[in-house]
């Protein structure tokens, strides 16, 4: 197997083989850019940071993990924080929980880069952890908040630190991202985002209900090149949809980040965005044929 996406690039061109990747980077950059627009130009579209923000001076958005920690720590915040949390939960329940991870979170840029370099250098991770470790870490984060009465995770949370690094210029985040990048590069492939991040774990649970899903409508054309597995940050989510029986083809696992990288690299157009109930295209044809006759 060559470098993933090369064949797709040959067949469909460079843009086609990188479009979701580039759109994601644009999205991640825009989110931070919008936060910086206010302080830099005085035009305030969104204010605050990824922890909690105010959109157009009216719509609050609050990080659900922070909210969970606050409640576990025995706090009862103002209504604004509850509304903000509901807005975020509603948004990602529609788009796919871990859309945050792949389209918004700045840490993703670092861990993707680490993964790219990891592959380029042909490194092997030494550490092995179950992907369910993130749920345990999520539990630890909430239990600590409960026992200490403080959102203790916020002393270390790389997502918050990265957000404050980029939006408020606090350099502590730089160290956190560097350590995280090195961890992913040297110790564990896709270590942080794929195995440990408690925020990702929380959004993964939201993904279980999201209507927007990547699916494999054209899975009959799959030539088993394995490139999708290679680029996927959560490769375990693909198999049930790609190799499953029955007409349903959507990736239902909540941990699919809807990043669309599999759509980019597939030279057979197997993947596409669709709904939870998307069906294979050949099944669709079978359905349509009787109508035509």
């Amino acid at each position: 197997m060559g470098w993933p996406g090369v064949e797709a690039q040959h067949k469909f061109g460079w843009w086609h083989a990188h479009r979701y990747l580039l759109l994601r980077r644009l999205s991640q950059l825009s989110v931070i850019g919008l936060f910086l627009l206010g302080p830099l130009t005085g035009v305030w579209l969104i204010k605050g940071s990824l922890s909690s923000s105010l959109l157009l001076d009216t719509i609050p958005m609050t990080d659900p993990l922070l909210m969970a920690q606050l409640l576990a720590a025995g706090q009862w915040p103002l209504a604004e924080a509850f509304i903000g949390t509901a807005v975020v939960i509603g948004l990602y329940a529609l788009l796919g929980g871990r859309v945050f991870c792949s389209w918004v979170c700045p840490v993703n840029v670092v861990t993707d880069a680490a993964h790219w370099l990891h592959r380029k250098l042909g490194l092997k991770g030494r550490l092995h952890l179950a992907r369910s470790s993130r749920l345990w870490l999520l539990g630890a984060v909430l239990l600590t908040a409960l026992f200490v009465g403080q959102p203790a995770w916020e002393w270390l949370n790389p997502v918050s630190l990265a957000s404050r690094l980029l939006i408020f210029g606090l350099y502590g985040g730089l160290l956190a991202l560097l350590l995280l990048g090195l961890f992913d590069l040297l110790l564990m492939r896709r270590g942080w985002c794929g195995h440990l991040c408690p925020l990702g774990a929380l959004y993964g649970e939201l993904g279980r209900v999201a209507p927007l899903r990547v699916g494999t409508p054209n899975r009959a054309a799959c030539n088993d090149c394995m490139e999708c597995f290679e680029v996927c940050p959560e490769p375990q989510v693909i198999r049930p949809a790609l190799k499953g029986e029955g007409p349903r083809v959507a990736i239902l696992d909540g941990h699919c980040t809807n990043c669309g990288r599999c759509i980019d690299v597939c030279s057979q157009h197997v993947f596409a965005f669709g709904g939870r109930t998307a069906v294979a295209s050949e099944a669709l044809k079978n359905l349509k044929r009787p109508e035509g006759e």
Binding site: S51, S52, S53, P77, E154, R164
Partner: peptide, 8 residues
């Protein structure tokens, strides 16, 4: 305990 560290 109550601050979400958002910077608003």
């Amino acid at each position: 305990a109550a601050c979400v560290r958002c910077g608003l």
